[in-house]
């Protein structure tokens, strides 16, 4: 595991409240402080409506926090920036651009010359296994392929911090596992070169978190309620999920999600066997 001392993301007393239709103010996120070192793969897990997507949207700069400050790569953020990339839960690929033009979009925003950005886009399309459909229209692709395009797009844009908001939630079992592998493969690029990219991955799937994360943050009622390290070596597979430490974490997570009595009951190990 590569964990350097450099702090990539730093949240200080972040809060965000919304005004509901009836005039009452509801806090989606309250008083979250958090430090994430460069290169760490962090999964955010929590029940629906716990504030994890709001937290992500704030770090992405798409939503301004009501209070607190967010520092990414040494700079306090004020809106979206090219050092951060976002993969959304719903399909975000522009249907009016061909696949390769979609992947180039971020580079085009920053004025990268056409041949150069085309080369980058094609390279990442190849990496996600879509080299053969570069000229296709998005409507011709399946849901899983569209997710591959979205992943290629943020990687091509060269962001240091990647945020993924339940990206594989709507996909079937096989496709989800293929895409997890694609994502880890791209993330692992960092190992050979300099440092890995920092990833924030929102999910509600406990196994997915165990397979992907260095660290799992449990979000509940707008706060970080648990912070768990996953020490299992990579590459991980289904067997990883059967390791005793993974099983313990799984029980702890299921407890947080209200699907199981808390670990303190002492039944956990027995139930897993």
């Amino acid at each position: 595991m590569v964990v350097t001392d450099s702090r990539m993301i730093e949240l200080v007393n972040i809060g965000r409240s919304f005004r509901r239709a009836d005039g009452r103010t509801v806090a989606a996120v309250s008083d979250v402080s958090l430090t994430i070192p460069e290169g760490e793969f962090v999964c955010l897990i929590g029940t629906s409506g716990c504030g994890k997507s709001t937290l992500l949207a704030m770090i992405a700069g798409l939503l301004a926090p009501s209070q607190g400050s967010i520092v990414v790569d040494g700079r306090e953020i004020d809106g979206p920036g090219p050092e951060r990339g976002m993969v959304f839960q719903r399909d975000s690929v522009f249907p009016w651009m061909r696949v390769v033009d979609n992947v180039e979009y971020g580079l085009r925003c920053r004025g990268v010359a056409a041949p150069e950005r085309r080369a980058v886009a094609l390279r990442y399309l190849d990496r996600v296994g879509l080299g053969h459909v570069e000229r296709a229209w998005p409507r011709e692709l399946s849901g899983g392929m569209l997710k591959r395009v979205a992943i290629a797009t943020v990687f091509a844009n060269g962001a240091k911090v990647l945020m993924l908001d339940e990206p594989f939630g709507a996909l079937d079992y096989v496709t989800r596992h293929q895409l997890q592998r694609v994502l880890l493969d791209l993330w692992d690029d960092g190992r050979a070169g300099t440092t890995r990219r920092t990833v924030l991955f929102v999910t509600h799937d406990v196994d997915e978190a165990l397979l992907l994360a260095d660290r799992i943050l449990v979000v509940g009622a707008g706060r970080i309620v648990d912070d768990i390290r996953v020490e299992a070596p990579r590459p991980r597979d289904t067997d990883t999920l059967l390791r005793s430490d993974a099983v313990a974490i799984k029980h702890r997570l299921l407890g947080h999600l209200g699907l199981e009595r808390p670990l303190a009951q002492g039944r956990a190990a027995g139930a897993a066997a």
């Binding site: 975000s92 085009r108 925003c109």
Partner: peptide, 24 residues
């Protein structure tokens, strides 16, 4: 989602109008 995606990828207001709003 298209507007958010374009902004997250670094599109300026004018670029977003040209490449997202107009075709959409």
């Amino acid at each position: 989602i298209y507007l958010d995606n374009a902004r997250a990828l670094g599109a300026s207001r004018l670029f977003l109008t040209r490449t997202v709003v107009l075709p959409a």
